[in-house]
Every structure is written in structure tokens, then in C-alpha cells.
Design a protein around this nucleic acid. Structure first.
Lengths: 223, 223
DNA sequence: CTTGACATCGAACAAATGTTCGGATAAGAT
DNA sequence: ATCTTATCCGAACATTTGTTCGATGTCAAG
């Protein structure tokens, strides 16, 4: 007699992997074999065990002995950010309209720790501190922190750190390439955009995060 | 026949508590009853169980069902800081000019984790998310997160969440009490202040932190 | 179609983990 | 001393959890 059986799930392995990641994000702990089984409606714990072994062979997960909840994620599946730990971002100095931003390769003045989930790929990110209110149209004010990813190009609509060659000025604007000119749109929704020739726009990086501390506590910096 | 027994350990309870904390710091997971037993050289798991129940009664720990590794630390023992500085803040809902903010006692929609160093006393804090651009004069825009401490009064100069009784409006302004009137100063440095009679100002809380995520990643929420 | 690698299945076993129970001892109050 | 409460003890029980096993089904390549 033929046993009835579910169709082979093509990427059950990846489903398991991301299930583990999601579970960890929510519970701050790893699931048991049977919790995975129930969560993904798998018929038997042995199926889970089978895939866990393959994942371990592939180095994607690790396991701690035969202890309960001994699964450990080694690599986070695409699209799912790693858990909320704090990662240090180098603080390079001030940003002001009148001067170019510090070179990304300069020695950091300090380190500022940011929750990983707020950022994308944390590689190469650096932090600047807004000096003065000259960039108020970007909705940032004196004392704000901004986290920047150093890139040469940004997609249309992204907020960029721009150095304007003709007027020797740093500015934060949403970037739109339109034919041979560039539209630089302030974050402030009612303010007029700035149109400049593409060749005077030098993109320094992409703004990924902004934060403002209002309670007078010392900035979250570590030496 | 007299059974030989170790002298009563006066503060075994606290030993257990800090053992759990140390275990968590090192392993990023909570110990089992028997791991505590072995670690502290306690004769029986029932002794551990006994103290765990007392700790739970005292609210110092929590337990997740009868699952393996179901212990959760509620309060960290003195001298031992939490392993990461991220503390969960309840997210209560939107803030918009047209409506009052959610009641601080309402059930949180989710939790958002913020580095402790950016906040003062994290007790009672809650998070709101800005809806629309009606509070642009406070230099916050649609989608920004703001962390609020619920207080009845603020010091002069602090940024407050204010409900204006006469015009049924929520606003974020720097608060200055001047004789019998209140000056509400926008964060935007060039914008004119609003003067209102003190009795129409209802302070809902004090803004301690603002953050803006620009990279389109899902907000760091759990729960 | 045939084949072989891969995947699923159910059932059971083995180990771990949480919990209960009756009784004993220790420590402090009276 | 006597009493009361808190704590400890060992053993067993009940669940949960990890793992094994043999049989069987699925799927893509040849």
C-alpha cells in the first residue's frame, strides 16, 4: 500500500535556515528540532535532523554537543539581518556645509556603537557629527549624528553626501540624475530642489542613518 | 542515622542569580537546571528548582513554560551589566498632529531595541513613529522614530510632546514657561515660536531620542 | 525507462531536562 | 528548650529533546 507523502519541498533546507533566524530574532534563543518541525509543518523530527546535518556540513550552522537548543547560526540567510548586537562605527569628525567631510581612511576619533539591525552591510560605514545648522534643509541640526556608507554612486532618490565642486560646499540631499543635470532635493518636503550640472556633483557617500540625542547624555562613544 | 549535609549557603539564591547572568554573558543562552546545579556544586536539582521558584516569585527571573532553557533574567544582579546595551522599548503606535498620542499604558504593538547609552533611565520609556510631515518644524519627518519619557512637567528648553487643548493638536516643541504663558519653540532655528496660555498646554512627555532610518531596512522590531 | 542521489516518513530509543515528593536538617525566634 | 520557618536532600517521575533506523518515495540525469 502506497503511503501518502508530501511532495518534496525543494528548498526546505533554506526554509529551515531562515526559520531559525526568525526564531532567534524573536525569541533571542534557538529553536529545538521539534519546534522547527511544528513551525514548518514537517512530518517528522528526523527530516529536520537530516537537513540540520547537511546545514552543519555546509558550515551554515553549528551545533553545541547534544544539548537542548544547541543549534547555532553561523551565517545569516540573505534578507534576514543578523540579531541586534551593537557594532562599532568609526567616528571621523564633523560635517559642515563649508568643508569637505573627513577622508574615510583617516584615523577614527572614536567609535560609536549602533544596533546592527538599523544598518545594512556594516562594512566601511562611518559616522559624522553635524556642526551648525547650515544643513537644516536636510532635517538635521547641530549635534545630530549621521551614519554614512562611502560610495561613488547612489541610486535615484537616495540621500547622498554631496560635495559641490563649484561652490565648495558639502550638502545632504536626495539625489536624482536627470539627463545631464542632477536634481538635489532637500529632505524637507516643501523646499525647492537645486539643479546643478552633473559634473559639479561629487558623491561622497550615502546616508543610511541619522540620530539625534535630546537628553544631554554623553554621546554613545567608546574610545 | 544522621545524613551528612553541607551547611546552609546563606545566599545561594544570589549565587544562582549571578551564575545565570554570567552564563548568559558567556554563552548567550540560559543554563538548564542541572547546569546550574553542577556549576555551583549543588547536591540536587530540586534545590535549584526551589530557589528558582523563589526568584520567580520575587520577579527576578521569568520562566518560559516548561521548555528547556526556559529561564529568563528580569533584573540583572548588581555589578553585572547586561551583556549588550540594547534595551527593549515598547512601541505604542503613531504620532501625528491631528491626534493625541497613544496612552502609555496601552499594550505595545512591538518592541524596539535601543542602546542604553543613548537613554537616561530607561524606565517607562516608549517609542512612537511619526506619521506624516505635519511636525516638520520639529525636524522630524514621516517614518522617524521618537523615544518619549512620560512626564507631566519638563524643564525649560527641553523638547516636549505637547497636546494643545484649544486646537486639539499634538506637537513637538521646546518648552519655555514664561510667567503665565508658554513659549513653544520649534526645533527649526529660524522658525517663530508659538505663544500660548499655560492652561491650554498639556505635556504628554519629554522627547529623549529621535532616529531616522534611511536605508529601507525593516525596522528593528521584535515581538 | 532505469538509475542513483536525495529526501521523506513513522516509529522508537536514548539522553536531557523540568518537576514532584516525603522526609530531614539548619537557622532563627520565643 | 521548643517551635516555626526556610532550606536541603535524594530519588523517582514526566516531558521534552536529540538521534537512529529501515523503508519508501521523489526527481533529475543518462
Amino acid at each position: 500500500m502506497k503511503r501518502r507523502r508530501a511532495r518534496v519541498r525543494r528548498d526546505l533546507r533554506n526554509e529551515i535556515l531562515s526559520f531559525i533566524a526568525r526564531w532567534y530574532q524573536q525569541e533571542r534563543t534557538y529553536p529545538t528540532v521539534r519546534e522547527i518541525q511544528k513551525g514548518l509543518k514537517i512530518s517528522s523530527p528526523s527530516v529536520v535532523d537530516y537537513h540540520l546535518r547537511r546545514l552543519e556540513e555546509g558550515g551554515l550552522i553549528g551545533r553545541v554537543g547534544r544539548r537542548a537548543r544547541g543549534i547555532r547560526l553561523r551565517h545569516w540567510p540573505d534578507g534576514l539581518p543578523p540579531p541586534d548586537d551593537l557594532i562599532p562605527i568609526p567616528f571621523l569628525g564633523p560635517i559642515a556645509a563649508g568643508q569637505p567631510i573627513p577622508n574615510p581612511n583617516t584615523e577614527p576619533i572614536a567609535w560609536i556603537r549602533i544596533p546592527r539591525t538599523w544598518l545594512g552591510d556594516p562594512a566601511d560605514l562611518f559616522a559624522l557629527r553635524v556642526q551648525g545648522n547650515s544643513m537644516i534643509d536636510a532635517l538635521v541640526k547641530d549635534g545630530d549624528w549621521i551614519i554614512v556608507k562611502p560610495v561613488q554612486q547612489v541610486k535615484n532618490g537616495e540621500m547622498a553626501v554631496v560635495w559641490l565642486l563649484d561652490r565648495h560646499e558639502t550638502t545632504l540631499k536626495h539625489f536624482y540624475l536627470e539627463e545631464d543635470r542632477v536634481r538635489l532635493q532637500p529632505a524637507h518636503p516643501t523646499m525647492a530642489p537645486l539643479y546643478v550640472p552633473a559634473e559639479v556633483v561629487q558623491i561622497q557617500g550615502k546616508v543610511v542613518h541619522i540620530l539625534r540625542n535630546l537628553n544631554g547624555f554623553p554621546p554613545p562613544i567608546e574610545g
